[in-house]
Design a binder for these strands. Structure first.
Lengths: 198, 198
DNA sequence: GCCTTAAAGCTAATGCCATTAGCCAAGCGG
DNA sequence: CCGCTTGGCTAATGGCATTAGCTTTAAGGC
């Protein structure tokens, strides 16, 4: 019988696909093993149990999200960059719901901070550059931005927006609210171009 | 041997306590049964399996959160009501993390919408009354407000704010950002008193 | 005060999953 | 061609949810 030829990367990627397709709650060693046509215990040669598998999916999610919003921000600045980034953020969460869910728990998984080739938080920090915030407000502003984007995406993913009103429109309004809030952030240098005028 | 004297309510409340103390992920029929000094299958006489148990905890969470923020808002209006409500919202999530986590999944648990004695979303809607928003913007504003509050609390609960900067201060700044964003909401009647002046 | 009876709580049994131990063979390096 | 690393396997254990079916409690009618 020929070998299956698994690697840690192959296993993690299959797990991520499964998470996206069936939901993060459906991620199990047994399910991944079945997809790879392999017995469950075989996976232990490549990943560190279920906890390790989840961690790998979370890492793929963090890097994937980071790369996506990075690409969305490149060549833009200020409100314009924020709008583009916010759009990419939500789109990634829609396209990779399992990875996105996994990503949330990453901070709690203590241990040596592993290789994040593209840290989403760092990208958001760069996006906020163009808003002229004082140095000591940057961390607070990043946190607020993360909260708003994640909160929307999370509520949406849980079916929390039940009314018929257009959810895309709500998101656009939320992002514009963020732009306004950031332009008038305490201690800010003042108004920045809102990106809707030349 | 005398009976244990369980009721659906008693079981649900013990489950909620366990969720808060050990984390929602630790909620299981076996764990609840052990706390109540009862065999696991006995619980099926009072709740509809694990899914039902989670649903009950979610309901306790929704009602608890609703009551808390309701009380915080009473007698206040506009930005003042928003600040008080936001504070109560976060405090509830801190004090009842298990219930709060359960609550998120409530919308997905399809079926007959059950008795919500105090719907948190309705309370938020009333809080937004004082901001003079046009009728057709109310739903969008409520969604934005929910997103921001939940997002912050959720990131915080997952240990997402790793830097040493004061998290309470970030929350206060986020809430002030919301106040600004809502006062200048598209189509709004204009500025409202920001609550920091008589 | 008995006796019927609905229901509370139990034990036994099944099945799924994670995890560990230990076996076996594939396939690479010499 | 040979040996050794290591990928993948089977077997076994233990936790959990769930169902079936039994026993006995204790409430209410008589």
């Amino acid at each position: 019988m020929p070998r299956a030829g698994l690697t840690p990367t192959l296993v993690a990627e299959e797990a991520a696909r499964l998470s996206d397709e069936e939901g993060f709650h459906s991620l199990s060693l047994a399910a991944v093993a079945k997809r790879l046509k392999v017995a469950t215990p075989s996976l232990y040669k490549h990943v560190d149990g279920l906890a390790g598998l989840r961690r790998e999916v979370a890492l793929l999610g963090a890097n994937g999200l980071g790369e996506r919003i990075q690409r969305a921000a490149v060549g833009r600045s200020g409100p314009d960059a924020l709008r583009s980034t916010a759009e990419a953020y939500r789109r990634y969460a829609h396209e990779h719901p399992g990875r996105y869910t996994a990503l949330q728990r990453l901070p709690l998984l203590a241990g040596a901070e592993p290789v994040l080739t593209a840290d989403p938080v760092r990208v958001l920090a760069e996006v906020l550059r163009g808003f002229g915030l004082p140095e000591d407000q940057l961390v607070h502003a990043i946190r607020a931005l993360r909260s708003a984007l994640h909160g929307f995406v999370d509520v949406e993913a849980h079916g929390g927006f039940g009314l018929p009103e257009d959810v895309d429109e709500t998101y656009a309004l939320l992002v514009e609210g963020l732009v306004r809030a950031l332009r008038q952030w305490p201690g800010s240098a003042g108004r920045t171009n809102d990106g809707t005028e030349p």
